[in-house]
Amino acid sequence: MAKEIVTIKNLTKTYKTHERKAGLMNAIKSLFNRKVVLKHALKDVSFTIKEGEVVGLIGPNGAGKSTTIKALSGVLHPTSGVVRVLGYVPWKHRVKYVKHIGVVFGQKQQLWWDLPAIDTFDLNRDMYEVPEKIFRPRLKRIMKMLDIEEVAKTPVRDMSLGERMKCKLAAALLHKPKLVFLDEPSIGLDVIAKDIMRDFIIDANKKDKTSFIVTTHDMQDIEHLCERVIIINHGVVVWDGPLKEIKKKYLKNKIIDVKCESPIGKFRHKGCKIVSNDKYELRIEVDTMKTKIKEVVSHIMKNYEFADLVINDPPIEEVIQKIYREKKK
């Protein structure tokens, strides 16, 4: 039975801000009379994570996921509730605790900017107090897997986005953390880099039993990596369960964007709803329960002179709105 490594119970975070209105007059007014506004970032959030899980933590911007990450990384003190990670209360024993976690921020600079990545790796060895004889072979293996042996010797500021991302990932796992947070890890990466990254994560999860919490807007990441998904919206957990269930329940629909060379007249097909229809462009929502995608596509190919055709999942916000709306009922 896998160990519980993250326990969150009734986590609530409320903070006071001041109402801010634009303009010079309001700025002066606010010096005399500041209206206190309570912001409820997290309302009674509860979930647990077991060792070896790869969990997706998703939600629209402002939903509370970054607040959750802050609470889990020891930066935030909750207004109320319990947070226990790897046996620690994160903000109480921050320095001891963070030795056992790793974090990758897709959009932030994390490595020493002016130095070759390999320097950051060596410096981290000391910072995390990893013995050299354990560190060196692990580093070699990780660099090989991520294909960064050569590029790690160049200064981080001269690297491409993808190379930097891979180095950040390496740096986060070098000290063999038990839990790793990935925040937008595949942003700006090309397809090959994304693959390498995902394989690496899956390998770490299998070999070292490293647990991952992934926050991202990229559904592909979620699909490749996460068996379980937690959705947070407006500071509340609105879904906590297997990804398969979400797909079964909500991602029945696909969006097809078609661009044609000649004007599109009326479009009609079983299981298809027109989202928008301009003269040359058409957006259709297909209910895959009612009709197969390939049927719709071949129908388009047969009857229209199409120039471009793109098939997409509905945006995650839509899915979440749907889930949230359902919860409200």
């Binding site: 990384s73 921050r94 320095v95 001891k96 963070v98 030795k99 976690i101 932030k108 600079q109 910072m127």
Partner: peptide, 12 residues
């Protein structure tokens, strides 16, 4: 640059 949080993730 929004990088403050990282310094809290270092064990120092």
């Amino acid at each position: 640059h929004g990088n403050v949080i990282q310094f809290f993730l270092k064990p120092i």
